[in-house]
Design a protein around this nucleic acid. Structure first.
Lengths: 249, 249
DNA sequence: CAGCGTCTGTCGGCCAGCCGACATCGATCC
DNA sequence: GGATCGATGTCGGCTGGCCGACAGACGCTG
């Protein structure tokens, strides 16, 4: 074991803040658990899993329930959220096809602290806690993958937290849209289509504001020609402009 | 999709919100990584680690730097924080003796997104990324332990996020104090001593407010006889009262 | 001891954004 | 077709808490 004294570091700081491209590169990869899985692992996973179906609005699990399963979303969309004491719904994130959820409480043991609710008809694989644990112990590579997923979540949540503290509402909305489009958007030339229907209320719940404020921020963005919205789906017309709104100013 | 603002309507149950005891039980255990390690693992860890020393204010690592090490705090106190674009410091958490930090970016790969800064003279074990990864792959139990740590962080951060969205400043401060005292406080009869010196600015940075507001909230709490502060160390005189302030009202 | 830097306490002006209230616009369902 | 229900827009009043400013207090250091 080497002993090393590190000199006081009042080093020049000022690393550039993460921008959309950076976020995309680090976020897209680890989020899709099933896709990262080799076919042999996938088969093994199927062996210990149960297929379950949920309709729009159904809860996969609720806060307070024992966290007895890990879930993999095969199709559909699931919303992970928490209720504030006042009954306000706070959305932590959405899960899309291929993603894992419910992992944290299984690793930690203890009950759920969040709710998982299907936003549309969804098919999930449910794997009992102990089986999944065994599975990971036998396949260390998968344990690493799980850690990556947790780490990504942690990073995203940390970023959301910082945004919430530091930015005003319009900046938060802009950043949310950029984050979502980096992960789930389809890029067509300079434009980006975000094929996820979102109500103003949901955006408000993700960003920590009131519905009315979201309405006004969005109409301001439309007026500036930054984006348009069709049938609840956001269509970014000028990503550059949107980026400017989040960075400087 | 239905967004329920008031849960009481549809939710048949209504699980009680987590209180201090609950938080303590789930948080204390997994946070102290070194203590959970058996002696044989500890020795193995020492084999691949380098001991480093940092003085008060030194950075263990900064945001933007490559995340090349995992760290274990043997003694001292380290602050994990992020800088907002405006230069505001946002404290995500403190690490105390025995805890691991810098894990998330190593698992995920990519650079640091947070800063780790020693609050007092600290001694850490630094383990290079690849070695730690090997170590985990050879010791699946430790991989599980790491996942527990990440999961706990995720839970705490989620809770902080919800607090920030839902609660006003005085509630946030009260909850912060309860959280800290659940983990790090010494209970003497009905009173709790929190042996961690905290400036108002630091509290503000954890809770997302201004320093002035923290000052006034704290003096209000003192006036109510909830707590007293001696030399920057909080002393809770009536935990019950503090709990009431966070729950109902 | 003086001098200095950091932390605490307090006050008042000011404004972002919350909240209630309503009107409209589509869907969906008899 | 009407009726119902959720999502949008828009407006104004009200206020929590931010921010600048300044005055002690406390603990270092020379």
């Amino acid at each position: 074991m080497t002993i090393k004294i590190v000199a006081a570091a009042t080093a020049p700081q000022g690393y550039p803040p993460a921008d959309a491209a950076d976020i995309a590169s680090t976020l897209v990869a680890p989020s899709n658990f099933l896709a990262q899985l080799g076919p042999e692992y996938y088969a093994a996973l199927l062996d210990i899993a149960t297929v379950q179906h949920f309709g729009k609005g159904d809860f996969v699990f609720r806060a307070g329930a024992p966290g007895s399963n890990v879930y993999f979303l095969r199709s559909g969309k699931v919303k992970i959220h928490q209720l504030s004491p006042l009954g306000r719904e706070i959305i932590l994130w959405f899960c899309f096809s291929g993603e894992i959820f419910g992992l944290a409480e299984v690793a930690r043991g203890g009950g759920r602290v969040v709710n998982a609710q299907a936003c549309e008809a969804s098919e999930v694989l449910a794997v009992p806690q102990e089986k999944f644990r065994d599975f990971l112990e036998r396949n260390p590579r998968l344990a690493m993958l799980s850690m990556q997923v947790l780490s990504s979540r942690l990073r995203v949540l940390g970023e959301m937290f910082v945004n919430l503290v530091a930015d005003d509402v319009s900046t938060r909305v802009a950043k949310l849209i950029l984050r979502l489009s980096a992960r789930y958007g389809t890029r067509v030339g300079k434009e980006v289509f975000l094929n996820i229907p979102l109500t103003h209320q949901e955006i408000a719940d993700m960003v920590g504001t009131s519905r009315q404020t979201v309405t006004s921020v969005l109409s301001s963005l439309k007026r500036q020609g930054v984006l348009s919205i069709d049938n609840r789906r956001i269509h970014i017309e000028s990503e550059e402009l949107l980026n400017e709104l989040t960075h400087g100013s």
